[in-house]
Amino acid sequence: MAEAIIDQAATPVADEHHEGHYTSLGLSNMKLAMWLFLGSEVLLFGALISTYLLSKTRFLTELVAGNPEVVAGISNDENAELVNEMITKGSVEPLFDIPFTSLSSFILLMSSLTMVLAHKSVTEGNYKNLRIWLSTTMLLGATFMAGQVYEFTTFYREGLTYDGSLLGTAFYTLTGFHGAHVTGGLIMLGSLIYLSFKGRMQKDRAETVELVGLYWHFVDIVWVLIFTIVYLIH
């Protein structure tokens, strides 16, 4: 009975390949909880993306209509050309650097691949590969974040400030929130690498790697949405 309560209360089903412990659904508590949490995150990002879309539409409508406060909010000393282009095109596309962001997206997609390979390594008991893939994932994630910092500074110089315009507020909030999630994932990845070096991240804990992976892939999926909805459908 002692084992039974520990198993039910705290310990996840170690791995699908091993004999599992009793759960009513057959999916471990941890994994079920992670999926529920991610389900809730869908609503969070859904609201943020909707807010962005609405704000962008309202911003462009007012900008094209020549609302002086909206025009002033996006203008600085040097960007008259850019603002004019946005007005004539009725689009925020002149602001974006699509090739650069495409590269960022590629990097984040790649990090999903390395993450899943890390999980594969740990299920096979290949701890050296686990550390290699985890470190690669972390490196790619950090590169993505560096790209975001670079992008934010560029946009800021181009005249898109946080408090100046509705577009700026909505854009930085949405992408910044995603960035915060990536940062959270980086902390988790760093912890996994540390634990692996200490020999605490072995085959029977593959699920811990998988859970971090679920979170990481979810963050990647959100970027898939943001990339298309924010950057490509300008």
């Binding site: 900008l63 909010g73 909030t173």
Partner: peptide, 26 residues
């Protein structure tokens, strides 16, 4: 999470000069 987002928007408006509910900015 829906309420949390609404509250985040308000937080950014009030504490960091955001424009989510700023009618002057459209």
């Amino acid at each position: 999470p829906v309420l949390t987002v609404a509250q985040l928007l308000l937080l950014f408006d009030r504490r960091f000069d955001g424009n989510f509910f700023n009618v002057a900015q459209g």
